[in-house]
Nucleic acid binder design. Sequence first.
DNA 1: CATGAATGAGCCTTCATTCAT
DNA 2: CATGAATGAAGGCTCATTCAT
Lengths: 256, 256, 256, 256
Amino acid sequence: MPIGFGDPGEGRPDELAAVPREISIGDLRYTTSHCVRGRPPGRAGRLCYSLAMRPDSKPVDQKTFIEEARRAQIVSCAVEVIAEVGYGQTSLARIAQRAGISKGVISYHFAGKDELIQQVAEYVVGNARAYMRPYIEAAPDAFGQIRGFIEGNLGFVGAHREQLLALGDILANARDANGSLMPDISGASGAIGTLDEFLRRGQKDGQFRAFSTRVMATSIRAALDAVSGQLIADPELDLRAYARDLVDLFHHATKA
Amino acid sequence: MPIGFGDPGEGRPDELAAVPREISIGDLRYTTSHCVRGRPPGRAGRLCYSLAMRPDSKPVDQKTFIEEARRAQIVSCAVEVIAEVGYGQTSLARIAQRAGISKGVISYHFAGKDELIQQVAEYVVGNARAYMRPYIEAAPDAFGQIRGFIEGNLGFVGAHREQLLALGDILANARDANGSLMPDISGASGAIGTLDEFLRRGQKDGQFRAFSTRVMATSIRAALDAVSGQLIADPELDLRAYARDLVDLFHHATKA
Amino acid sequence: MPIGFGDPGEGRPDELAAVPREISIGDLRYTTSHCVRGRPPGRAGRLCYSLAMRPDSKPVDQKTFIEEARRAQIVSCAVEVIAEVGYGQTSLARIAQRAGISKGVISYHFAGKDELIQQVAEYVVGNARAYMRPYIEAAPDAFGQIRGFIEGNLGFVGAHREQLLALGDILANARDANGSLMPDISGASGAIGTLDEFLRRGQKDGQFRAFSTRVMATSIRAALDAVSGQLIADPELDLRAYARDLVDLFHHATKA
Amino acid sequence: MPIGFGDPGEGRPDELAAVPREISIGDLRYTTSHCVRGRPPGRAGRLCYSLAMRPDSKPVDQKTFIEEARRAQIVSCAVEVIAEVGYGQTSLARIAQRAGISKGVISYHFAGKDELIQQVAEYVVGNARAYMRPYIEAAPDAFGQIRGFIEGNLGFVGAHREQLLALGDILANARDANGSLMPDISGASGAIGTLDEFLRRGQKDGQFRAFSTRVMATSIRAALDAVSGQLIADPELDLRAYARDLVDLFHHATKA
DNA sequence: CATGAATGAGCCTTCATTCAT
DNA sequence: CATGAATGAAGGCTCATTCAT
């Protein structure tokens, strides 16, 4: 199940979520040039052609444009599909179908399914962080940060429910080759660390009573993650009220 | 992620859990899991289940008996496999392999993979309920019930970690044919209803302050469910202390 | 291109080539038995069921029967396909199609394409050895062995042209994961060692002149291998005459 | 496996072999293969071919020129790739990657993969013929021609092992659309005809005894072709000695 | 009741080829 | 002339399921 995103640091801007579906841009401009040099008339000379070769690093931004747009489109469709049918039922075929492209395109733009899934996770985590940052930065004190975290998180749930559903499914299923759970794909669970930090500060400031910050942080995140599930069961759920109630809950749980 | 099991009511008796694990007789004496790993190579083994019978029960229907024993064995092996490699990597072949039987047996005893998974979920839920019942029944008041719920739940996590891991994976992946999440497979989440009831009673008795019982119940269960994840990250986790901290957390969160 | 097979040792009997295409045989007989022991009437007893478990090693030959028959059938069809369309164009689908079975069957009986190909190579090598053995064993002296080798080899080419074509294609394409040639899959090239031995003996006996046995052995085998190619170009090629000419050639090349 | 090239007639000039390998000018100076491996990372490179021109040739058609240079570059890279990873593992993508160009370029300059492969074969055959011609032309008599053929062939193997490995792989896999072997792609096996001619002349001159010239020619070529395989197994193989031994072998085999 | 054999759909990936830019 | 993007077919493989024995 999903996960709170804490680190208010470098996230992708939310606009990225707005994926352009129609793309039509130029590409690299490596062309072939030729020169005839130093050939005195009537003497053997050398015709020198220089053939274009691909550079090792993408030199221009332009070329990344269409590439990135497609990748974004595919990632976006993957989010939709995962959220809708679940990780287990998600196949490249289904994603391609939703994107209206052929399976091969995905393989062309991503090294494989794993990379795509990884990108999806990072995409959602990035969006969530960016969304939550202002909520947290505005906070005057430690509990304000907790409140901001809760409200920001539920705000994102409301705004991009799909994304969190998808991420939750991915995290619940992310396993390495051995089948062992990968509990922290894409640093998603950084949230707990962030919360822990807030809680410690509150304790130091005397705003919070003594408690295990680890248990408290874990429980806050768990409570937030549980909301996606509630939303599925009751799509009409009032997230604003839910956020208020959670803030209240953890206010009583933490206050000195 | 897993789930708390509350209803202290009609669970399957705990012995059922033992059927496929404790084996008493036969020319070879293995537990179900030993049978695969520890069988002397080159010899066909025989898993021999002996089921306790009440003296004055009527003649037993053999068919039902062996049937049930097999089902229990398969369910038990399925739990192991799911906990180990994850739902997504769990195939009938792997389960059969672990049980030392052929794939066909599973299809014979279960209508399909779905039914097997369903049975696994019910099996774990039943065990968890039976395990938690005494914790809860001994409680003198509403918060005592909450405390019992938390302690019983974490006790079960400690005693049968595998089962909860498996259940968690199943619930995270349980989907109907359409791909929609089935948030309440096998009535597992009955837990929330039970908790809700306890909380209401506490409010009525004046032991608890006013709060949304739904949000509180959901958060308690979420906090409990999160523990499996913590256990994976840190297998040395002190569950007893964790339980104490959680009880403390929700004591402050609920008390009048 | 193909290869001579020297080692006159343990080959499969030629009959193996006659693959039964219709199969219908019994299988393992592991059934479930049950016993009620020592239950004095009216007292609690123990109903003891013993459930069948697969043994680790295949205990009976019967079970291998159908299995082996299918494997043989598939190997046989693979030979045909490879000989006909070439290694590069040979897919499991084509083999399955020729065998009138579904692709899955092949995967069921062989660990993968690699194992199948390996089996094909071993099958042909085994047949060739078995075929050539009597030719060589009857030889009175070193050159008699060379003669037997040549005649046996060309005899096998005539009798099972397909098999050598297939083997040749496999050997020409057998590469490990890195793409490096695997020059000696299934010990096929043991032939050179065998020839080398014959040649050394002839030199020791004074029957042969001095020469590099390695170069001579390699050339003999190469000359034999080239025959398959000639056969393709000219299906009417008189193999008996060809053998006589080759024997003559290497008689002059080796004689003291 | 490779093939001897006999016809000392119309081969492409040896320089062609050099076109894509020796590069003289340009801001960057790499050979074709270096360009991929040794290009300074992050900089676009330019492969610059300079083609020798006769002083009084008419104005060169640029189109043809650059076209030919590219084709030569691609053919050359194809040789490398085939020799390295084998025909079966050779894809246009891999060739393009080695050439530092995009896949499309290949499709642009060649009608398809088949034409490219055909060109590769012709390229190698042409080089081999050109290489061998002086060896053969210098011969005073029939056996001298045979000797020249053998020495020239092994000389080429030593000088351009890669090319023969590639050709061998191609010939072993060259099939038409139906999957039938194309035993004489690019007239490669013309070698047999050439040898046959030499042998007949020797018989007419009384230098050679009576034997089937076809069998003898085929065996000579086969013995030569086998050398590539020996080289793989033992890269330290002394080709000069090997040639001497082969000459000796066929001297005894043919002499009157 | 259990088995091994078989099926057929689906999965991910690779590939030669085409094409707008 | 070169490119990157896209396609669609095919490849090998896994899997849940069915079935005769």
